[in-house]
Design a protein around this nucleic acid. Sequence first.
DNA 1: ATTTTTTCTTAATATAGTTTAAGATTTATT
DNA 2: AATAAATCTTAAACTATATTAAGAAAAAAT
Lengths: 193, 193
Amino acid sequence: MNINKLLTHFSNYIPLNDEEITELSNRVIERNVKRKEFILQKNDICNNYTFIVSGLFKMYTVDKNGAEHILHFASENDWICDINSFHNKKQSLLYIDAIEPSTIIQIDNSNLMYLFTHYQKFDRTFRVLIENKFMELENRILQNISSKAEERYQFFLEQYPNICNRIPNVLIASYLGITPEFLSKIRNAISKK
Amino acid sequence: MNINKLLTHFSNYIPLNDEEITELSNRVIERNVKRKEFILQKNDICNNYTFIVSGLFKMYTVDKNGAEHILHFASENDWICDINSFHNKKQSLLYIDAIEPSTIIQIDNSNLMYLFTHYQKFDRTFRVLIENKFMELENRILQNISSKAEERYQFFLEQYPNICNRIPNVLIASYLGITPEFLSKIRNAISKK
DNA sequence: ATTTTTTCTTAATATAGTTTAAGATTTATT
DNA sequence: AATAAATCTTAAACTATATTAAGAAAAAAT
């Protein structure tokens, strides 16, 4: 069962005891998701924290011209959630769909709140989880305000070696905030060095 | 005493009981900080979470050309900390200094860890705090990858009406990731509309 | 296996943003 | 009050990136 992958993930933060493992296991559901299938769409309320057992997702907005802007990629052993919609029960502005066929484990809002309330460890673990994600975003912001597109691309390749060759360049461009044509130019310039 | 401002701040998340108030009060220190005084410098380890009672700070890197890139502004009733340095006890890449004469309340690493370990509420409150900051950064990233500088400037003015007129434009430009000359051009274009 | 769809590239032209330099204005310091 | 320092603006020339369009290559669907 894939729950083991989630338990191993937790144990990298704080190992769970038997009671916590049982409680957690009873409160999550496992799902398979096809390529291009949505697990969140705009105007829906994001009711789940999603742990990715295998596969790859993108979270993004679509602007008035129909262009996608990718806020996050997330692959195996990572979480994906619109926490604004999740915690405030507000309609989401974001889409999340699968770039690859994927297997996920989801915990919904009420079950996660139950764990937060009854077991201190979950508050702690999710605090540390979100702190780590916050640091990643800080680095990304710094890149965005201080570096040219070529440096940001090189940094992306270094930072995400496991996913960068599973993602079409058109999506990497959208993540970096540039056009695919310009990314192509950058790649050409790099290859000539 | 200014500790009341901190207690009020906590009570916006989860009110503290008497014991928690006593514990917290005994574990923080209050300081006054002059304009341009550093509370964190590059290569130091950030050993404090800093709550701002009054005043205004900037957190930034300095690149190889000596240019500042501002990651965060923080004013009264807000927190500022390099959480990467703080939690991992790593040398910071960042500076934090006061834009205005300020009063702050600081809690150091060991005291905060004590509170986390002994009182669940602090884990919870700091989880929610960092979740809110994470959402703010998500919005900023989306702006950076999808909007032109003029829109980002207008959004900044709307989102931070209380601080935007206390910050010189040269620093706003650095926060937005543009040159002060170009911000001046944008302001001129806006004023002609 | 063939067709359709998606992805990647190239190039010309256009726009957004930077650089350099200089002067004017405002704010801080003596 | 005078001087020094920081801030804001303008403009010309330059560079980074976007747009448009078109064709080639690769991947997905039938």
